[in-house]
Simulated scan of single mutants.
Amino acid sequence: MQKLMLLIDDDKEEQEILKAAVEKADPDVSFAWAANAYRAGLFLEQVLPDLIFLDYNMPGINGLELLSSLRKKEKMKHVPVFIYTSALTPALQERARTLGANGCLEKQPDTKRLVRDVQDALRTVAGTKYHPIH
């Protein structure tokens, strides 16, 4: 059964980078992108992803605010959510975990490391196949 990962991030370039990493991490995972909290809300009304990567720095509603909102919805309580940001700090990690994030990942140009980070995140979704990159 194919898994679905949703990225919520206002940066189109980050969407392309993460999509490429997901394709390398596991070609059987499909990928969706929402550019902001509003679009994510519309998407989530129709589709429940298996995993969400959520940018912290977005205009309007930031990632932590959206995470808090998502965790209040019954159907979203058990969907793994990872904060995905270039501004990762210990304080942000602690706040994200307090609000219900499954983890935090730092945006980075190192493709191999990003693929490993995506594979680690995918391990939170039962039944996902993994294709190690060497």
Rank of each mutant, 00 (worst) to 15 (best):
Q2E: 12
K3D: 02
K3Y: 08
L4Q: 15
L4H: 12
L4K: 15
M5S: 15
L6T: 03
L6N: 04
L6F: 05
L7V: 13
I8F: 14
D9L: 11
D10K: 12
D10S: 13
D11T: 12
K12I: 11
E13D: 13
E13Y: 11
E14I: 14
Q15I: 01
E16M: 14
I17H: 03
I17R: 08
I17E: 01
I17W: 02
K19E: 15
E23K: 15
K24S: 08
A25I: 03
A25Q: 02
A25V: 03
D28V: 04
S30D: 04
S30Y: 03
W33N: 01
W33I: 02
W33D: 01
N36M: 07
N36Y: 10
A37M: 04
Y38Q: 08
R39W: 03
R39F: 05
R39N: 09
A40D: 00
A40E: 00
A40N: 00
A40M: 00
G41N: 05
G41H: 02
L42H: 13
F43H: 12
L48Y: 00
L48P: 00
L48M: 05
L48G: 00
D50R: 01
D50K: 01
L51R: 00
I52T: 03
L54V: 12
L54K: 10
D55F: 09
D55V: 10
Y56S: 02
N57K: 15
P59R: 13
G60R: 13
G60P: 11
G63Y: 08
L64F: 09
L64S: 07
E65G: 15
L66M: 15
L66G: 05
L67Y: 07
L67V: 10
S68Q: 14
S69I: 07
S69H: 11
S69N: 11
S69C: 04
L70P: 06
K72A: 14
K73M: 10
K73R: 14
M76N: 05
M76R: 06
M76G: 03
H78Q: 10
V79Y: 03
P80I: 08
P80C: 10
V81I: 15
F82D: 07
Y84A: 04
S86D: 13
S86C: 11
A87W: 06
L88F: 06
P90R: 09
P90G: 08
A91I: 05
L92V: 12
L92T: 09
L92G: 07
E94R: 13
R95C: 04
R97G: 08
A101T: 06
A101F: 08
N102C: 09
G103R: 11
L105Y: 05
E106H: 01
K107R: 12
P109R: 13
D110K: 03
T111W: 12
K112Y: 06
K112V: 06
R113F: 04
V115P: 03
V115S: 07
R116G: 00
R116L: 11
D120H: 09
D120C: 06
D120P: 00
A121W: 00
A121N: 01
T124R: 13
T124V: 02
T124F: 15
V125H: 01
A126N: 02
G127R: 09
G127S: 08
P132L: 13
I133D: 06
H134D: 12
